[in-house]
Simulated assay, not measured.
Amino acid sequence: MPSSRKRPKPKTRYQRFLEKLRREKRDGKGRPLVLSEGDSWFAFPKELRPSTMDILDRKLDMILMRLETNGDELSAMLSGKQRRRLQYYLGKWDFNLLLFSGGGNDIVGDRLFPLLNTVSSNDPWEAVINKEAMHAAFTLIEFYYRDLIQIRDDLRPECDIITHCYDYPIPNVNGKVKCLNQGLLGPWIYPALAARGLIDSAGQRSFARWLIGQHREVLKKIAGEYPHFHLIDTPGTLADNEWGDEIHPTKGGFEKIADKFIIEIKRHFPVVES
């Protein structure tokens, strides 16, 4: 007869975090205390492929508390319940590192439509950019990153922040992903460009590179002002065949992004072993 015993519930992120704290207290190896917050580049659905943080959690010996959520925008991460949660952890434990991923969802998907002009086939691809709207969008992204730094400075000023600036996606009408509980998702860039009249694939790709470049420039500016804010220069890391859908890497692509994080983490904490 089949056993009637119930399987134990999977441990929560918080339970795993506390276990690692207890292990460090026992053996005193000097593992860094790391907090992570972010979007789907940190929290891609596990049934599809491991994301950056899944890989880092596997490869590095660190005391990790994970807060990231698939699909999060900066406004969600830095307001309301999620903001209070971030403040709680930074205030309660002496974190050495805050790994962060954000800004992509603020400028793609439904957010992208109002940032674009309607163009004709004779217009250069640059004409699709609504400069005033784009400036406002990236000003808001910059505001939220500076707000993140202020939260860190208020609660844990010695904690280093490490973030990244994605990579150059390839707009693609077929760049969808099928999630078990959400059905088909995406694409996130192609629909807005096509709806606004930019249907040339080379022009769409040039626009995507420009969009990521603007995000990168915002973060480079901030990194130049704050010594404890570190930007990993990820654009150009992925080959064309290392995109699993329109805006997310394949498993191998996520491995390459994670490897860049490992190099940066080890630069600050050489005791971390993979």
Rank of each mutant, 00 (worst) to 15 (best):
R156H: 13
R156G: 06
P157I: 05
E158V: 05
C159I: 07
C159L: 05
C159E: 03
D160I: 08
D160K: 11
D160M: 10
D160W: 09
D160G: 07
I161A: 04
I162H: 00
T163N: 08
T163C: 09
T163E: 02
T163P: 09
H164G: 01
H164Q: 15
H164E: 14
C165E: 04
C165Q: 03
Y166M: 07
D167K: 02
D167M: 04
P169I: 00
P169Q: 03
I170T: 11
I170A: 00
P171H: 01
N172V: 01
V173T: 13
V173M: 11
V173N: 10
N174T: 05
N174K: 08
G175V: 05
G175S: 05
K176D: 00
K176E: 15
V177H: 03
V177K: 01
K178Y: 13
C179R: 09
N181T: 07
N181P: 02
Q182C: 15
Q182Y: 15
Q182G: 14
G183K: 06
G183L: 10
L184Q: 09
L185D: 04
L185V: 10
G186P: 09
P187H: 05
P187W: 03
I189L: 06
I189F: 01
Y190W: 14
Y190D: 15
Y190L: 04
Y190R: 04
Y190M: 02
P191V: 01
P191F: 08
A192W: 02
A194Y: 11
A195L: 09
A195F: 12
R196Y: 02
R196P: 04
R196I: 01
G197K: 02
L198G: 00
L198R: 00
D200M: 01
D200N: 09
D200A: 02
A202P: 13
Q204R: 15
Q204M: 06
Q204I: 07
R205Y: 14
R205S: 03
S206W: 01
S206Y: 02
F207N: 03
A208I: 00
W210F: 10
L211C: 05
I212W: 08
I212N: 00
G213L: 15
G213Q: 06
G213K: 15
Q214G: 09
Q214P: 05
Q214W: 07
Q214V: 11
H215D: 04
E217Q: 08
E217N: 12
V218R: 09
L219W: 10
K220Q: 15
K221S: 11
I222E: 10
I222M: 12
I222C: 14
A223M: 15
A223K: 13
G224D: 12
G224S: 04
E225T: 14
E225W: 14
Y226P: 14
P227V: 12
H228L: 06
F229Q: 00
H230V: 14
H230G: 07
L231I: 13
L231H: 14
I232S: 13
I232P: 05
I232R: 13
D233F: 01
D233N: 10
D233M: 15
D233P: 08
D233I: 14
D233A: 13
T234N: 15
T234C: 05
T234F: 11
P235N: 03
P235D: 06
P235H: 12
G236F: 12
T237K: 10
T237Y: 11
T237L: 13
L238D: 06
L238P: 12
